[in-house]
Simulated scan of single mutants.
Amino acid sequence: MEILSFDSLPSTQRYLTEAIRRGEIGGPTAVIAGEQTDGIGSRDNRWEGGRGNFFASFALPEPMLPEDLPPQSASIYFAWPMREILAEQDPEVWLKWPNDLYRGEKKIGGVVTHRLQNFYVAGIGVNLKKNENSFEALETELTPMILLDMYLTRLEKAPEWKRIFRKYRLEFEKSRRFEVHVGAELKSLKNAHIMEDGSLMIDQERIVGAR
């Protein structure tokens, strides 16, 4: 995978998206920045932060991904390898449905995913050392570039969705004490049922985690 490294970017995901639209990206590509000043978070919130934290995005052509991957659960799929790496540093790290990385009760990062042309584009932000965006930090000695290398190594193995889902289904139980936004409404996950494609059934309504 080609890796593009920058000292500073407004948004790694926006940079990659615009490069794809201009026809400059033809294969798997990752973008990492030393700092991010106008990043994209969940529900179009901003994810910013200073140096020492992890700001990266990557684009994978759809044929490189497992055939059984449900598009609406791509964020779970891409977040899980990062969750495993971070949990090796701190066993309190876990993945809250569908795309937030938590340490105990506090958010430390997240994944935002969308499809563009024949690519899946995912942005990942993790507070490794500093807390400049109101969220907690992992406080690890991992550098952003080493973390990116570790992450891409796992991702390139392209595990099947069903293998990741078997693990995530157990971890989902930790999400039950939280609520999620469904449009403008907050819904409790206490009685949610997680489906094989990673979506949820809440009060007979199917909820997908596209972002």
Rank of each mutant, 00 (worst) to 15 (best):
A56Y: 08
E84A: 00
R103N: 14
L69N: 08
R51K: 14
P98T: 12
G104Q: 10
G50S: 14
R103Y: 15
S57I: 06
P98D: 05
N53W: 00
A79V: 08
W94T: 10
A79I: 13
A79C: 07
Y77H: 01
I85T: 03
S75M: 04
V93E: 04
P61F: 11
G49C: 01
D68Q: 13
A74L: 09
A56R: 04
A79L: 00
M82S: 06
N53L: 00
M64D: 10
P91R: 06
A79H: 04
P98I: 14
S75T: 05
R51Q: 07
L65I: 04
L101D: 07
W97V: 09
N53F: 01
L86N: 09
R83D: 02
Y77E: 00
L60V: 10
W97C: 12
W80N: 05
P71Y: 07
P63Q: 00
M64F: 10
V93Y: 11
F55Y: 15
A74Q: 11
S75W: 11
W97F: 06
E92T: 15
V93I: 11
D90L: 09
N99D: 02
P71M: 12
S57F: 03
K96D: 07
K106Q: 10
A59T: 03
Y77R: 01
I108R: 03
D90G: 12
L86F: 06
Y102G: 01
A74M: 09
E67G: 14
K107I: 09
E67H: 13
S73N: 06
L60R: 08
D90E: 15
E105Y: 10
A87Y: 06
E88V: 04
E67S: 15
E84L: 00
Y77M: 02
Y102K: 01
F78C: 12
D90M: 14
F58N: 00
W94D: 13
Y102F: 14
D100G: 03
S75C: 14
P63I: 00
E62V: 11
P81T: 13
D90W: 09
F58W: 07
F55A: 10
W80A: 04
M64W: 13
P63M: 02
S57D: 10
P71W: 10
D100E: 01
R51N: 01
A87W: 12
G49K: 00
P98G: 06
Q72K: 14
E92C: 13
R83Q: 09
G104H: 09
N99L: 08
G50F: 00
M64E: 13
A74D: 07
R51G: 01
G50E: 13
S75D: 02
F58E: 02
P71H: 13
D100Y: 06
L95V: 12
A59F: 10
R83S: 04
G52Y: 05
S57L: 07
G52I: 03
E105C: 08
P81A: 04
P70Q: 09
E84C: 01
M82E: 03
P70F: 06
E88G: 15
S73W: 00
D100H: 05
Q89C: 14
A59I: 10
G104P: 07
P66F: 01
D100T: 09
I108Q: 02
S75V: 07
V93C: 11
A74P: 11
W97N: 11
G49F: 02
I108W: 04
E92A: 15
K106F: 13
A87I: 02
P63N: 02
I76F: 00
